[in-house]
């Protein structure tokens, strides 16, 4: 055996003299993780049971019915508001006070302008301008 071989043998022996012992806590942690995972799987199994499915279907029907009711009441109230707004707008526009629904000052100013442009008959007919 030459020097190199002896040296290699020493290295080999030193390498095999070092080791690590397993930590028992590692097994406990692994078991705890497995147990936690199995707990989660149990909950999923519960969700798959017929009673749970029936409950879920019932809840779906109830929530759909409630949603429909809410939507219907919402539609009717929207229609009422729209109808009221339209009526008051038409009434204001058709009101024969010469303002066409505008404030009086704005209406008179616009009439003055239109008179200057040679449409005095309209203004006269409305009795706004003398």
């Amino acid at each position: 055996m030459n020097g190199d071989d002896r040296f290699d043998e020493r290295i080999t022996r030193l390498l095999s003299a070092s080791h690590a012992s397993a930590n028992p806590a590692v097994l406990e942690r692994a078991r705890a993780r497995l147990a936690a995972r199995q707990g989660a799987t149990g909950f999923l199994a519960f969700l798959g049971r017929p009673v749970a499915l029936a409950t879920a279907a019932g809840l779906l029907v109830v929530s759909a019915a409630v949603s429909l009711m809410v939507l219907r009441s919402d539609n009717s109230s929207t229609a009422t508001i729209a109808a009221t707004t339209n009526t008051s707008l038409v009434a204001a526009l058709l009101d024969d006070d010469g303002t066409y629904g505008l404030p009086a000052e704005v209406a008179s100013a616009s009439d003055g302008a239109s008179g200057a442009a040679g449409t005095s008959e309209i203004g006269d007919s409305n009795g706004v301008t003398p």
């Binding site: 070092s18 080791h19 690590a20 012992s21 397993a22 930590n23 590692v26 097994l27 692994a30 078991r31 497995l34």
Partner: peptide
Amino acid sequence: LGEVFERYGDPMTTLAAS
């Protein structure tokens, strides 16, 4: 799993630590 750990826990730990 306990048996695997009992038998191979040491070599597994030695490999990982090394």
